[in-house]
Write a protein that binds this DNA or RNA. Structure first.
Lengths: 241, 241
DNA sequence: AGGATTATACTTGTATACAAGTATTCATGT
DNA sequence: ACATGAATACTTGTATACAAGTATAATCCT
């Protein structure tokens, strides 16, 4: 790949195939509107651009189709991208998942889980202390993923896994943007995660719902403008740590 | 493809590529345990068996991996298959989806939806009257899909779409099995669908929940033994209308 | 005989070649 | 000038070829 890469390398385990890298790179380019909506991509064109053959490109496009980011027609892949409605809907699903999960966690106590969550939260604090926004984003997702994995529900996990990559991009971009505009937001995000741990530890279901709900509000509402304002999105794209 | 095909042709629109056909065929073979769990499939082996090249096979396996039916390792694809826990979990998700959807339907009245549901229900009755179990199954799924699609929630639809093919197989197999063992089950399934329509039309949320819940119970519990008993599964596989 | 090492037959990932179909363009006929 | 049709340059879907890696089997050495 020749051009500047938007997706951070460290999130790609070195064993990943070219196809998987392509997916990550194309995904964030589409979501950040570096590849504009309704543009048409062809396998050959992308293959040429990234100096690879059609095989991994084809693979990548299939994945992006399943994530709803492109529509594969007979004549090229049409870029759908992400709308504000999509983002709302994604958080609908996330709320569904997390409500389901915490519902099950109320009846099973699990100290190991709480410990791991505290560990990740500490890491989030460190990350933000040193201005490592990408790492912060990654750990944020990991925090929630740990909770979801804790109930051992394969199908819920699959739904999460389908959503995860897109959400990762959304969070990554919004956090990068914040880091230049609303740095104090991070404190509130951290507080929210404390609240989640608190709710899980006391098994207070109302507190739990409140914590998740306000977490979504925090993560999402504050940067609504990001998704419609091209200038702001450019800032988020051009972030380089 | 040379051997007997388990997946009914008519559900494959003729425009489908070889890869998509392969997916459907492999999926039902895995779920019906015609391909046993923990067996190892290689791209070359399947390609040879179905007289196609590796390209469509590779594509098919990737899809099956996303559905959790196989695990793609460095050395062949290991068949995971479906466990009873998986089935329970799938119906967890389905309940989540349908509860979410009907929650939204309570505030928006939609006569066109009800009409379409009645139409499909009539078709289900005809199908079963003439002993067309596959068509009955297909219409059953369509019934629920229509409801889900009615709220115009892209992400919910994507979750449904991810689940749909596997569920289609589960329903297809269980219905085939019923048709030889518990034919009267179909009447109760029809009644349940009447109940759903009734609940939707009166906007009775309790009735709605009850209808969906008992529908799941009906669809699922009665044939639990199917998924553990190889003989029964063979019957369901060998169904030929 | 038994353990290490080379050979071999597999596996996937990627590149390339070919076939079939579609949109565009350009020429041609009136 | 304009509609019609043939040529061309694209597109995807599939098949095949090659490279790199891995497990199994055979061989060799002690």
């Amino acid at each position: 790949m020749s051009m500047k890469r938007l997706y951070p390398d460290r999130l790609l385990s070195s064993t990943n195939s070219m196809g998987e890298r392509l997916v990550s790179e194309l995904r964030i380019r589409i979501i950040s509107q570096d590849i504009p909506k309704e543009s048409v991509l062809s396998e050959n064109q992308i293959a040429k651009e990234y100096q690879v053959s059609r095989s991994p490109v084809r693979e990548a496009l299939k994945v992006l189709e399943r994530e709803g980011l492109v529509r594969l027609g007979r004549m090229g892949a049409i870029v759908i991208g992400i709308s504000e409605k999509d983002i709302e809907e994604i958080y609908d699903i996330r709320l569904l998942i997390e409500t389901f999960v915490t519902g099950r966690l109320l009846v099973s106590h699990n100290d190991a889980l709480l410990n791991e969550l505290r560990k990740v939260l500490e890491m989030m604090k460190i990350a933000i202390k040193y201005g490592d926004v990408d790492e912060f984003s990654f750990k944020d997702i990991e925090f929630h993923e740990i909770i979801i994995k804790s109930i051992n529900h394969q199908q819920i996990l699959m739904v999460w896994n389908q959503l995860r990559p897109v959400m990762e991009c959304l969070i990554l971009l919004s956090m990068r943007y914040r880091s230049k505009v609303n740095y104090e937001d991070f404190d509130r995000i951290l507080e929210n995660h404390e609240l989640i741990i608190e709710a899980l530890s006391t098994k207070d279901s109302k507190l739990m719902d409140k914590a998740f709900y306000s977490n979504f509000g925090d993560v999402q509402n504050r940067v609504e403008e990001l998704w419609t304002n091209a200038e702001m999105m450019k800032k988020a794209r051009d972030y380089d740590g």
